[in-house]
Design a protein around this nucleic acid. Structure first.
Lengths: 188, 188
DNA sequence: AACTCTAAAAACTTTTATAGTTTCTTATGA
DNA sequence: TCATAAGAAACTATAAAAGTTTTTAGAGTT
């Protein structure tokens, strides 16, 4: 079955998001899945390969999502909410160790990730906010790009497993709270 | 002169904040300061030692700051502003690679950092917000701890050198924007 | 101008981590 | 019962980096 490949990408994505590229070993990924390294190397020829696969899938998924929302949700604030809810968990790689790792180790991959972040994420989400500004729904004394980064940073902080574990609140509560603060903060 | 020790701690703190513990080499630190490894080992017996020293100094500094603000600024929102402005740059280690690194490599140090974060940072800053809630200045439908974490996460995202570099805005602008959004978002 | 002390530069050794490979074992199913 | 597939685990090769030693250079001293 080919869908083992997807499970490998799942596991790798999780690990990479939390620990970066270097710190994650092939043994880690294998043992997460209860498979052997042998099987791992059956499906991917190297660790680098896995990183590329993770990136590919993530970017495809996010790209599709953004296109879909663009068509289906006209109100910028509603669109923002929707996208954030779905994209958030996938962008935990932004500004993480993973990026600093691959900057040195797989510079080609790094460049593609950077450009995707810049062009797709910031430009797109920032664009939504700007639309909100034009429509008079969002205050115009804030920089939309900074706002997006701030929001993503807030989410990133919360979804860290370590952080989540030692607190009593659920991730949904947290998302909710942050959205509340943020929406209230940016709206006119 | 003993103040070379402080310069070493400075350099290490910077590196550790950005890259974590593992990724930073003794050569990195030495070359940042234009000194030799020999001199490094003259002042600290190991890399671990330096990490402890960084932690010690940081926690002392922050502790002093918090105590001082407690005495001198009665209004919770003003106090929050003041503390955030000064503490922010020092807590970039929270939720960073440094923490995940030392969790494995120097567990004792990790525990002390975690407990400091929990007891001093979140409890203290969260306490300010709760005071604000009691005084009716801050809305009570948000979890103060989540709010603090969100805020710190937002800052953390912004102050990353990589992120700062490729954007046109200054760090002061960014702080300003975030504070605006956040204060607007949490106030009644 | 030779002398000394200090610290940088750089070469070196040793340890450790881990990517990738191989071998051995076990289970499944034809 | 044999063949294939996959896990477990041992193994190898290599690279990175901690820590040490040696060499070089310069600033101040007699």
């Amino acid at each position: 079955m080919n869908h083992i490949k997807n499970r490998i990408i799942d596991a790798a994505e999780k690990r990479f998001s939390q620990y970066g590229f270097r710190r994650v070993t092939m043994d880690d990924i294998a043992s997460d899945l209860g498979i052997s390294k042998k099987t791992l190397y059956l499906h991917f020829k190297s660790k680098e390969d896995i990183a590329w696969a993770v990136k590919e899938r993530m970017h495809k998924d996010i790209g599709r999502l953004l296109q879909k929302a663009k068509k289906e949700i006209p109100d910028p604030i509603e669109r923002f909410k929707k996208i954030i809810a779905e994209v958030t968990s996938r962008v935990s790689i932004i500004g993480s160790t993973f990026m600093t790792d691959i900057k040195k180790d797989i510079p080609d991959l790094w460049r593609e990730c950077e450009s995707f972040r810049e062009k797709e994420i910031y430009k797109y989400i920032g664009g939504i906010l700007e639309e909100g500004v034009r429509k008079g729904k969002i205050r115009k004394d804030i920089d939309t790009k900074i706002a997006v980064m701030a929001y993503l940073g807030a989410i990133k902080m919360i979804i860290q497993p370590d952080i989540l574990m030692e607190n009593q609140f659920s991730i949904e509560d947290a998302f909710d709270n942050i959205l509340k603060i943020f929406l209230e903060g940016i709206q006119k």
